[in-house]
Lab assay of single mutants.
Amino acid sequence: DAPDEFRDPLMDTLMTDPVRLPSGTIMDRSIILRHLLNSPTDPFNRQTLTESMLEPVPELKEQIQAWMR
């Protein structure tokens, strides 16, 4: 099983494109984008959230890719 820090906190699946929300939570980009289609909010604190506020986490993405090899 993947380490917890590699798993999306909402869907508990392996992240492939991790992004940091303004709240500091790291999620998979595809999952948070799907959530934003229904509700333009951070799913953990209900603060306003837009796609432009998502910050890529390239170092975590590299760690996940290395773990998958």
Rank of each mutant, 00 (worst) to 15 (best):
G24P: 01
F44S: 03
Q63D: 08
L14N: 02
T48R: 13
N38I: 13
I64A: 00
L33P: 01
P22V: 04
R7F: 13
R20Y: 04
S23T: 07
L60T: 01
L60H: 00
L54N: 01
P18H: 02
M11E: 13
M15F: 01
L10A: 04
D12K: 15
T13D: 05
L36C: 05
L21R: 00
L21E: 00
R34A: 14
T50V: 10
L33T: 09
S30V: 12
T13S: 10
K61Q: 11
V57T: 05
P58Q: 10
L54F: 07
L37S: 12
L14M: 09
P9C: 07
P40K: 13
D4V: 15
E55L: 11
I26H: 03
V57H: 07
R7G: 03
R34V: 09
L37F: 10
A66W: 09
L14D: 02
E5S: 11
D8W: 03
M11Q: 09
I32L: 06
W67I: 06
T48L: 15
R29P: 02
H35V: 07
M68G: 07
P56T: 08
S30W: 12
R69K: 15
L14K: 02
L14A: 04
N45E: 06
T48Y: 15
D28Y: 03
E51R: 08
L10P: 02
L54M: 05
L49P: 00
F6G: 02
N38C: 14
D12M: 14
I31C: 08
L60W: 03
R69F: 11
M27L: 06
F44T: 05
T13V: 12
T16I: 15
I32W: 00
D17E: 08
P9T: 05
G24S: 04
S52I: 09
D4W: 14
I31D: 03
I64H: 00
N45S: 14
E51C: 08
G24F: 04
P43E: 02
I31Y: 06
W67V: 05
M53G: 05
K61S: 08
L37M: 14
V57W: 07
Q63M: 14
M68D: 09
R69T: 14
D4P: 15
D42C: 06
D42H: 03
R29F: 07
M68K: 08
D17P: 01
I31K: 03
I32S: 00
M53S: 06
P22K: 03
T25N: 11
D17R: 03
P3L: 05
P22H: 03
P3D: 03
K61N: 06
S39I: 07
P58I: 09
I31N: 09
M11I: 07
D8R: 02
R34H: 11
R29E: 03
D42S: 03
L54P: 00
D1A: 13
D1E: 14
S23G: 09
P43A: 02
L60D: 00
P40R: 12
T16H: 11
M11V: 09
F6R: 02
R29G: 02
T25P: 07
S52M: 10
M68V: 12
S52L: 11
S52G: 12
R69Y: 11
E55A: 09
S39G: 07
P18C: 05
S39C: 10
P58N: 10
L36H: 02
D17H: 06
E55M: 12
R69P: 11
M15C: 05
L21T: 04
P56D: 14
P18D: 01
P22A: 04
R29N: 04
D42T: 01
L60A: 00
S39Q: 09
P18S: 01
G24E: 02
P43I: 03
E51L: 11
N45P: 01
D4H: 14
P43R: 02
L10I: 11
R46V: 07
A66D: 15
D4C: 15
S39F: 10
L33E: 08
E55W: 07
H35A: 06
N45T: 15
S39L: 06
P3W: 05
P22S: 02
L49M: 08
A2V: 15
Q65A: 12
T25I: 15
R29Q: 05
H35K: 04
R46G: 15
V57G: 03
I26T: 05
I64D: 04
D8M: 02
P3M: 05
W67L: 07
R69G: 13
D42F: 04
P43C: 05
P3T: 04
Q65L: 15
W67C: 09
P56I: 07
F44R: 03
D1I: 14
P40H: 11
P43V: 03
P22E: 01
L14R: 03
R34F: 10
T25Q: 11
Q65S: 09
N38S: 14
L14E: 02
M15A: 00
R20F: 04
H35N: 04
A2R: 05
K61R: 14
V19K: 01
V57K: 03
M11N: 11
P40D: 10
I26F: 03
E59V: 09
